[in-house]
């Protein structure tokens, strides 16, 4: 399957905009990515292993967080996993 890499994280994949991995689940796909590019790990996960709050994983058009089996969802070669940082803000002075 293909993992699409957004520009901010591309320095950690040798500037590749997309990476092909062999995987049976979303988790295997992400592990395949971070195994090949170890520096990628800390940009996706907190030190205690949780996906960073501002990082979204989309399997095709579905938010992985809301899939019944989440990261254990099965994937096939034609699937695309998008790693997409969130975008928000506003003039409000406090978060």
């Amino acid at each position: 399957m293909k993992i699409e890499i957004p520009y901010p994280l591309r320095p950690y994949t040798g500037n590749q905009p997309a990476v092909d991995v062999d995987a049976a689940t979303v988790a295997e796909a992400v592990n395949g990515l971070t195994s090949r590019y170890p520096d990628f790990q800390k940009h996706l996960y907190t030190p205690d292993g949780k996906l960073r709050s501002f990082v979204n994983l989309y399997l095709n058009d579905e938010d992985v967080r809301y899939l019944p089996e989440r990261e254990e969802t099965a994937v096939n070669d034609s699937d695309t996993l998008s790693i997409i940082p969130s975008i928000a803000g506003g003039s409000c002075p406090v978060g």
Binding site: P6, I87, G89, S91, P93, G95
Partner: peptide, 19 residues
């Protein structure tokens, strides 16, 4: 009705480096 300057909220929620 607010200046064209980034706010603390804009900064906290900005994650697209280089953009």
């Amino acid at each position: 009705d607010h200046p064209a300057q980034w706010s603390l909220t804009d900064f906290a929620e900005a994650h697209w480096l280089g953009c």
